[in-house]
Design a protein around this nucleic acid. Structure first.
Lengths: 217, 217
DNA sequence: GACTGATTGGACAATCGTGTCCAAAATATT
DNA sequence: AATATTTTGGACACGATTGTCCAATCAGTC
């Protein structure tokens, strides 16, 4: 059963949810789609993991294409919300820039990049990008389209505050995210979760290099 | 038909190859597997694109699992060879560090990262990593396992030569590659090729930041 | 307790994919 | 030219999957 989306998607609310079978389906579908790809994911497998009759899926969500679209849009929302929640903790007027930026980075990694939502979403988009072009566009709009500018704005604030020395905040934002993800792709291509200590290490390494490059001298 | 692996895999040798039908099959299979994933790729589609009878595939390469394994190992070899060929041009004693490193970076991007081989390979490994664990291991061994140390060694040489100021060459190598790939994931998730000018720009941006962080002051 | 709506499980046709078999055709070898 | 080898295309059995239909069951509501 490995690590499943359901673990993190389901708040400890009412469970098994009375009318929330729909959500259970979406969670299960996200798992299976991410593991097997669109073609490889069978409705039966999804139904089984959701603990639901196959017919219920067709009742609530229509055919496979539609199910997939709803799943992606569902996760997109969640993932976006998580990102901006963490973003609120960005250290705009830090006492200790490197330490506070590293802690923020670790949170960002934990809650918005490493977390199953974001991971599955990226994988799905990458895998099925050309099967559902509109979906790909939507994702780009809500993913890179909103997240990078938001990070860039925070970095620009730091530059204005005299903490950083930036020519191009937008580029710096992209490079900052790239540095954060340095060891992500390699280590965690598969679905395994990452140990906390490694996440902290990654955040520290990325932050150190970023500040070496862009810190006020 | 978009951009296909076959475009770059086929040397302008003898074509249509007399006995090299095997290679045509591998090329076509790489395309289809990358586009559709393992489950979604049908032998018929591969046969059609290769311009070959389905039976011939079974004759030469056995069943679907084996075909997939051979394809990945084939591309792994090619991609690895390309990488090390470019690596030979690494500027170990540069007159102008930033300029020469940027040019090397652009070549690396062009010939070993953006190129269809490397791209499809990464996508396949990412998508089907847990379906073929042994393959995943092989890839890790020949991919990150050999490439990062090789880069790290070159960077360490630059440090010894007084060009750079490095604590941890291995980490620097990973971060250097991450910076290089900054705009890659976003822009080029789908199979589209990248314009030359953008590649140069990416290489220049990455190199500039890398040297800001690790250049001798 | 009776009613309404969702859920279930099973059966179903239709489609598609795999992997095999084989005889005819094309290709290479001698 | 004769022979050996590969390729072809079509047919086939088998299993898996999709999407639909429906009667029986269940869960809440009045």
């Amino acid at each position: 059963m490995k690590n499943s989306l359901s673990d993190t998607l389901l708040e400890p609310e009412t469970w098994p949810a009375p009318q929330n079978k729909r959500q259970a389906i979406l969670n299960a579908a996200a798992d299976i789609f991410a593991e097997e790809g669109f073609a490889g994911a069978s409705i039966d497998a999804i139904a089984a993991r959701a603990g639901v009759s196959r017919q219920t899926i067709y009742n609530q969500l229509g055919d496979k294409d539609n199910l997939f679209k709803v799943v992606v849009s569902d996760i997109t929302d969640r993932s976006s919300a998580g990102f901006f929640k963490v973003l609120d903790t960005f250290p705009v007027t830090p006492k200790n820039l490197e330490a506070e930026l590293a802690e923020f980075s670790a949170n960002l990694l934990r809650k918005a990049i490493c977390d199953p939502n974001g991971r599955w979403l990226r994988k799905l988009v990458e895998t099925e990008g050309d099967r559902f072009p509109e979906l790909f566009e939507t994702w780009k709009e809500y993913g890179p389209g909103k997240k990078y500018p938001a990070i860039a704005a925070r970095l620009a604030q730091l530059a204005l505050g005299g903490y950083l020395d930036l020519d191009d905040p937008a580029l710096a934002a992209r490079q900052y995210m790239a540095l954060l993800a340095t060891d992500l792709k390699i280590n965690q291509q598969t679905g395994r979760p990452m140990p906390e200590s490694e996440i902290d290490q990654m955040a520290a390494d990325a932050t150190k290099t970023f500040i070496r490059a862009f810190g006020r001298r």
